[in-house]
C-alpha cells in the first residue's frame, strides 16, 4: 500500500507533503526513512493540519538555507531556458518541483497538468512564474511534453516530471549541455544499471535502439527518461508532436545527425513514484515503452538506415564473411 504518497489521503496535509519533500532532497538514508514513515504521514494528516503546516513549512526553509540551497546561483546561459513540467496528480511534489525549477532562473516555466483530479492545479498556480496548461482529460503518456514544447518559446527546453523534485544544481548540466550545442541532453542512467542479465526489458530496448542507430556509446540513454533537455532546433526538425513518442523522436534526431549526448546522472530509478500500472514485468507502461521502441525502429528501417554499420549486401557478403572467418 502506498498510502503515504497517495494524492488523496496524504494530500490533505502539508506535513506529509513537506516530509516527502525533505526526503526527496535527502540522502539514501532518508530514502529508507520514507519507507518507514510512509503510513505515519497519513496519521499526521488526521492529527492536525495547522501544526503540520507551520512546523513543516519553517523547518523546510531553515533546512534549505543551512544546506546551502539558497546560495546556489545558476551560471549564465546564452540561450533562453524554458522549463516544462508534466504532472499527473502530483500535488504532494509539484510545489517543490516548481521551486527547484525557479532556482534555475528560467525565462518561462510551463506546467502541463495531464488529467489531474487532485490539487495539482492549485499547487501549480502558487508559482507566479508558471504558465499552467490544464488538460482535465488525460492526454496519455508523454503527450504533455509535446504540448509543453509546442507552446514554449525558449532556446533550451528542460523537461521535468512533477512527481520528483530534483535539486536545481543537478538539473543545470542538462540545460548547460544544450547551451553548449547539444540538441538532446539525456539523463545518463548507465552507471546505475545492474549487469545486462538483470536489466529489465525496457532498458534492453533502449540499449538496442541506440546500438541499431550506431550510438552504442549512449548505452541506455533515452528521451523516455527525465530529466532531459532539448534544443529549439530538434523541436523544429522533428516537430513538437514527435515528442509524444520519445524513442521515436530520439531516433529521428540521431538520423537527422543532430547532436545527442548523455549530460548528467540523476537517479530517477530509485525515486520514481510507484503507481498502478508501472510496476512489475509486463505492466502497462512497460508495454507502452516497448511499443515506442518498435515505432522508433520502424522509423529507422523506413529510412533505410544508410550510413549505419548494419548494411546487408546480399548473399555475397555472407559468402565473403564465411571466407574471411576461415582465413581464405
Amino acid at each position: 500500500m502506498r498510502i503515504g504518497i497517495h494524492p488523496k489521503s496524504a494530500g490533505r496535509s502539508r506535513a506529509s507533503a513537506s516530509r516527502r519533500m525533505r526526503v526527496l532532497h535527502g540522502t539514501a538514508k532518508r530514502q529508507k526513512l520514507r519507507m518507514r514513515k510512509g503510513p505515519k504521514s497519513v496519521r499526521a494528516a488526521g492529527s492536525g493540519r495547522t501544526i503540520g503546516r507551520t512546523a513543516a513549512g519553517s523547518g523546510l526553509r531553515t533546512a534549505g538555507r543551512s544546506s546551502g540551497k539558497a546560495v546556489w546561483r545558476p551560471p549564465a546561459l546564452r540561450g533562453k531556458l524554458s522549463v516544462i513540467i508534466t504532472a499527473c496528480n502530483e500535488e504532494t511534489t509539484l510545489r517543490s518541483v516548481l521551486k527547484e525549477a525557479e532556482r534555475l532562473k528560467p525565462e518561462e516555466i510551463i506546467v502541463v497538468l495531464n488529467g489531474c483530479v487532485d490539487n495539482s492545479f492549485r499547487r501549480a498556480r502558487q508559482s507566479d512564474k508558471a504558465i499552467v496548461v490544464h488538460c482535465p482529460d488525460a492526454a496519455g503518456h508523454d503527450v504533455g511534453r509535446a504540448i509543453g514544447a509546442k507552446i514554449s518559446r525558449g532556446d533550451i527546453l528542460l523537461f521535468l516530471d512533477g512527481d520528483m523534485a530534483i535539486p536545481a544544481p543537478a538539473l543545470f548540466p542538462f540545460a548547460a549541455a544544450v547551451d553548449r550545442g547539444a540538441d538532446v541532453a539525456l539523463n545518463d542512467l548507465n552507471p546505475l544499471l545492474p549487469v545486462f542479465g538483470e536489466c529489465d526489458d525496457v532498458t534492453r530496448c533502449k540499449m538496442f535502439l541506440n546500438m541499431a542507430l550506431g550510438r552504442e556509446d549512449l548505452g541506455a540513454g533515452s528521451m523516455t527518461a527525465v530529466p532531459h533537455a532539448l534544443s529549439r532546433r530538434i523541436v523544429d526538425v522533428v516537430g513538437p508532436q514527435a515528442l509524444s513518442v520519445p524513442p521515436k523522436a530520439q531516433a529521428a534526431a540521431i538520423l537527422e545527425k543532430l547532436h545527442v549526448q548523455n549530460a548528467g546522472t540523476v537517479n530517477v530509478i530509485k525515486r520514481n513514484r510507484i503507481r498502478n500500472g508501472n510496476t512489475g514485468a509486463g505492466n502497462g507502461v512497460e508495454q507502452l515503452i516497448i511499443g515506442d521502441h518498435a515505432e522508433a525502429l520502424a522509423e529507422l528501417l523506413a529510412r533505410g538506415a544508410s550510413g549505419l554499420p548494419w548494411q546487408e549486401n546480399g548473399a555475397d557478403s555472407r559468402r565473403l564473411l564465411a571466407a574471411w572467418r576461415n582465413g581464405i
Binding site: 482529460d137 492526454a139 496519455g140 503518456h141 504540448i147 508532436q241 515528442l243 518498435a294 525502429l297
Partner: peptide, 25 residues
C-alpha cells in the same frame, strides 16, 4: 524486426496506452 513490424504494425502490436496524439500537431 522489420518482419515483426510488418505483421504487427509499426508498434509491433504493443498498446499506445491512453495517448491522444492528435492533441499536438
Amino acid at each position: 524486426i522489420s518482419l515483426v513490424l510488418e505483421s504487427g504494425g509499426e508498434r509491433a502490436g504493443f498498446s499506445d496506452g491512453t495517448r491522444r496524439r492528435e492533441m499536438v500537431r
